[in-house]
């Protein structure tokens, strides 16, 4: 029998649960990279007040504002998915995990709509 690789395994088993599992890992990795960049970026403060002010001005550029919104959305999905995982682990809800994933998908869409109505316009991009 031909041994299937990881990508093939994910492709062949791509259901709601697999989507949830993969998206949690992908969003997690994005957040790890972004978090490290943010923590290192803060080091500009070592070069004095002027350099830090320049950093704050740079962060107001549309590209960085867009990036911040993207990260907020990624974080929101990661948090919702994380809450689902904890609920499944603590209350042993493995049997209804597909329903829970559907629920968090709905909560995510509603949250994004709320975000784009109330938070996005006040950020200076729109």
């Amino acid at each position: 029998m031909k041994k299937s690789n990881s990508l093939n395994h994910y492709r062949l088993n791509f259901r709601l649960g697999m989507f949830s599992f993969l998206s949690h890992r992908i969003t997690g990795m994005i957040l790890v990279v972004a978090g490290i960049v943010m923590l290192l970026g803060l080091s500009v403060v070592m070069f004095g007040a002027f350099a830090f002010d320049e950093l704050l001005i740079t962060l107001e550029l549309p590209f960085f504002v867009f990036l911040a919104h993207f990260l907020a959305i990624v974080l929101f999905w990661h948090v919702l998915n994380g809450i689902k995982i904890i609920l499944i682990d603590v209350f042993k809800l493995g049997r209804i995990q597909e329903i829970l994933t559907s629920l968090i998908l709905i909560a995510f869409i509603l949250g994004i709509i709320f975000y784009f109505i109330y938070v996005f316009p006040s950020s200076g991009v729109a």
Binding site: L39, S43, M46
Partner: peptide, 16 residues
């Protein structure tokens, strides 16, 4: 390393 750098940055942020 990241914790140490961040701690140092936060302390500096209150002083600059």
């Amino acid at each position: 390393i990241l914790i140490l750098i961040s701690a140092w940055n936060l302390i500096l942020l209150g002083k600059v």
